[in-house]
Design a protein around this nucleic acid. Structure first.
Length: 276
DNA sequence: GCTATTTTTCCTGCTT
DNA sequence: CAAGCAGGAAAAATAG
């Protein structure tokens, strides 16, 4: 359904991010961009850990892989290490899902050098660590932080249309469950929070152990959420309404006075440092 | 298709 | 003033 007209998307991404939210459906393209943007370097071999992570997110989204069957900790490696993993290693690290990952990665490695025409104001992966010295200007953070949703697998090769999905019958009870990983807003927020090194100042922990966090770029997060839900007219105003509904369910706790600050409640799970 | 949740939209009023 | 926060209502999406 969604055709990815990649070329124009870049610019539209910019538009999206710089528009202040009142873009009544006229701007943002539904669907997604091809997985190119998030690949700062081109070759998987040169990916940083966070790029590997990004790739994994893409895979999970594209193939609807359940987070529970995708042990991210087994992939705390950089591109070089990732590429040196054998098929067996993948199976080991991710079970059946490993098959998909392995093949997808293989695809990627075959495809061309790179795009590298990403963003002129490119930020090096190394600078993502916490610091995030971004001013107030809106930047196209989608390329580095979109934890989600693409309708196409990021296999930039037109040659092999879709060697993936069916080739290996990956939809063994692990893949393609229901609506696996965070399909809920609070989970989406949580996931952004969980990996600060890849979160370029969108949301920030205020108190990690207490589960207090703050939106730094409310509209940007809203846009991201909108992208996830394929809703181009999402705004922080609306997103926050949904957040407020969480109070009653105790997924979030109210935090007085402080703007853009929320706190996970007893019914929110999976956000703590180490815990189930 | 139906039901129960969740989220999205919109809105009025209040607070920072 | 602009941007957030609060919730109520009701429509739209989703999950099952």
């Amino acid at each position: 359904m969604t055709s990815a007209t990649t070329s124009t998307l870049d610019s539209q991404l910019f538009t999206t991010w710089s528009l202040n939210s009142y873009s009544d459906g006229s701007v943002v393209v539904p669907g997604g961009y091809s997985g190119r943007l998030w690949t700062g370097e081109c070759q998987p071999q040169f990916w940083s850990k966070y790029q590997v992570w990004e790739w994994l997110q893409q895979m999970m989204d594209v193939y609807q892989i359940d987070a529970s069957s995708m042990p991210l900790h087994n992939f705390d490696v950089d591109g070089g290490q990732l590429c040196s993993m054998s098929y067996q290693d993948f199976l080991h690290a991710a079970g059946n899902v490993g098959t998909v990952l392995y093949h997808s990665l293989a695809e990627l490695r075959l495809t061309d050098p790179c795009q590298s025409e990403s963003v002129h104001h490119d930020v090096k992966p190394t600078e993502f660590d916490f610091s995030c010295p971004y001013p107030d200007t809106v930047y196209p953070s989608a390329d580095v932080c979109d934890p989600s949703f693409t309708s196409l697998p990021p296999l930039g090769s037109p040659s092999s249309s879709r060697t993936d999905t069916k080739k290996s019958h990956i939809r063994t009870d692990q893949v393609k469950k229901h609506n696996p990983r965070g399909s809920h807003l609070w989970e989406f927020i949580r996931d952004i929070l969980l990996y600060p090194e890849r979160n370029p100042g969108l949301i920030k922990w205020e108190d990690r152990t207490e589960g207090v966090f703050r939106f730094l770029k409310s509209e940007a997060v809203a846009q991201l959420w909108g992208r996830r839900k394929n809703n181009s007219s999402m705004t922080y105003e609306k997103l926050s309404r949904a957040m407020r509904y969480y109070y009653k369910r105790e997924i979030l706790e109210r935090v007085d006075g402080r703007r853009l600050v929320y706190k996970f409640g007893r019914n929110a799970r999976g956000w703590r440092e180490q815990e189930t």
